[in-house]
């Protein structure tokens, strides 16, 4: 029963992948004939050195954010959680803005600074949660995440305020809106070794994830090592999120809504909804990025498109009846 939709989603992802290679603004807007690959050296260069790494990165980005979102919503027992909320997204944004202003705006420097501050944001959230004297562990992490995110977003505000309005400010704004325009093979090689193992681990533990959404007491009585298993899944999810945010900026909504779409389509059981979430995330991010680089002569920031399309799709889905494809 539940196998078929996953096969269909995989086929859709492969189709979107193949088509994306020929979508863009060369040699003319929207579409390049595949035969041009044989005739034109420039077309070959473009497809294999620019489009291919970017397409692969878009797929990994969508998979990582949607997979991490699904994991974190279940672990935090809260369907409104998104993967960057533990200080990761805002920390990365601060790191990027800081590098753009103070460290000279080289792509690798910006990405490294974003990654370091993403980890710092997570570490601060964790330390703060440990020292809060209020609520259970999950609630304390949520509260700490909110506080640390607010701290970094005020820092981002300050950096934007002091930034050179002609050179630095547009860079910061563009980065914060998220996008993959600067991605090459070297960025892909930098995130793949983090994202792929993370995705494999959460995929392997997908049924187990259901147990982690139960109360501590019940999960314990079912033999789950709640602390250890939650830490492992949370750790790999945050690592994958931090890696993609570092190269792509803050791409909103994928990690929040794709898990909802997947659960709606496949049922709550993460054995089926988690793989669906990962696949839908990959397709969604890829299609949005195709639009981002094709629709307009310049580039539309990816985060704007994922939010716009995601929000519309989400509203439409919530107003329709749930398809119950269960036996």
């Amino acid at each position: 029963m539940a196998r078929h939709p996953l096969i269909i989603l995989t086929a859709l992802l492969l189709l979107a992948f193949a088509l994306s290679l020929f979508v863009g603004r060369f040699p003319q807007p929207y579409w390049m004939s595949p035969t041009l690959l044989q005739e034109n050296e420039l077309a070959r260069q473009l497809v294999f050195n620019l489009r291919l790494p970017r397409i692969l990165t878009a797929v990994l980005l969508g998979m990582a954010l949607a997979g991490a979102g699904a994991v974190m919503q279940m672990i935090f027992r809260n369907p409104l959680v998104e993967p960057g909320f533990l200080g990761v997204s805002q920390g990365a944004g601060f790191g990027a803005a800081f590098a753009i202003i103070k460290l000279g705006n080289a792509p690798l420097v910006v990405a490294t600074s974003a990654a370091l501050f993403a980890i710092l944001g997570l570490a601060l959230s964790y330390l703060l949660a440990r020292n809060l004297r209020y609520g259970g562990w999950v609630l304390r992490l949520v509260l700490a995440g909110i506080a640390v995110s607010a701290l970094f977003s005020s820092g981002i505000g300050l950096l934007k305020y002091v930034a050179d309005p002609l050179k630095q400010l547009p860079e910061i704004t563009f980065w914060l809106l998220g996008g993959l325009w600067s991605v090459t093979w070297s960025e892909l090689i930098y995130i793949a070794p983090i994202v792929l193992p993370a995705l494999i681990i959460i995929w392997l533990m997908r049924w187990r994830l259901n147990l982690l959404s139960l109360s501590d007491e019940t999960a314990f009585s079912l033999g789950v090592a709640t602390g250890r298993e939650r830490t492992l899944l949370l750790g790999v999810s945050v690592a994958a999120t931090a890696a993609v945010v570092a190269v792509a900026g803050i791409v909103g909504w994928i990690g929040l809504i794709v898990p909802h779409i997947a659960r709606r389509a496949m049922g709550t059981d993460a054995q089926h909804s988690l793989p669906a979430s990962i696949l839908i995330g990959g397709i969604f991010a890829l299609l949005c990025d195709d639009l981002a680089r094709t629709l307009y002569v310049g580039e539309i920031p990816l985060g704007i498109l994922t939010s716009l399309i995601g929000a519309l799709f989400f509203a439409a889905m919530m107003m329709s009846h749930p398809p119950r494809s269960r036996r």
Partner: peptide
Amino acid sequence: EYVPFDFSVLEFVLLGRAPYLSPLE
């Protein structure tokens, strides 16, 4: 028990099999 996600009743009861399954099963 507060369950924030809408598991089907069968999915919910199947969670009781956890003690007999390894973490990856």
